[in-house]
Design a protein around this nucleic acid. Structure first.
Lengths: 113, 113
DNA sequence: GCTATACGCAACCTTTTAGTTGCCTTTAGA
DNA sequence: TCTAAAGGCAACTAAAAGGTTGCGTATAGC
């Protein structure tokens, strides 16, 4: 029941991780169970609303999950979708490799990088 | 020596792969040895100059390499920097895991996802 | 009940990004 | 040599992204 590789989701993950502030958020969340929006904003040089927007992007990519607890919503890291991105890269790399291998055979010798 | 994990380069890779057209280019390049700008542009719904810009982004991220051959410049895939991105994700995931593990110990039982 | 905290929503501004058109240079080939 | 193909460079446009301020709503706690 592992999350199946979803090429669509991979794109969202790449996009989400393409922003340094969002990577920063991910790193913070990887070190604690859950964090509130304000808690995260307190550690960053941008406003709470700015953080909230970034969390929205991460949530749409499936990388974080929000749970409302009283008056605050706590965010938890959800690393699973990253495997879709990793799969995409592995697949591209593999195809590249096999292409290299075929080329090597054609040339009649092992081809090194 | 394998390319050492470079967190800076990881950001550039995530950014570069965050665009669907650039992923398309990467996929095309993974299937052939080298391709010219015009060759790539012929397969995509955007202009040659548009493709050239994307190739510039990919090149700055280290994901492709250009070689001028006569009047055309041929681009080759260079998948190595992707490992920086993969390393970053793996590290985040590992930290998250170990945090979970420690939490599990504190609670006196194995914690499942 | 009142106040301060934590959010969500919406409008707005500024910068980047994706993509275009136009023009000029270099090279392959008939 | 003259032309057509391949590219680089620069200016410009439209749209998206990152970020802000302002305001309204719900909840915790005195």
């Amino acid at each position: 029941m592992i999350a199946s590789p979803d090429p669509t989701r991979a794109g969202a993950v790449f996009f989400a991780l393409g922003d340094p502030t969002r990577r920063e958020l991910i790193e913070r969340l990887s070190g604690s169970d859950t964090m509130s929006v304000s808690g995260l904003a307190a550690e960053l040089p941008i406003t709470r609303q700015g953080v909230a927007k970034h969390l929205g992007v991460l949530e749409r990519a499936g990388l974080v999950e929000a749970t409302r607890s009283g008056r605050e919503s706590r965010y938890r890291l959800r690393p699973e979708p990253m495997s879709d991105a990793a799969d995409w890269m592995a697949q591209v790399g593999a195809q590249w490799d096999s292409r290299l291998a075929r080329l090597g055979e054609l040339l009649g010798g092992p081809t090194k990088e």
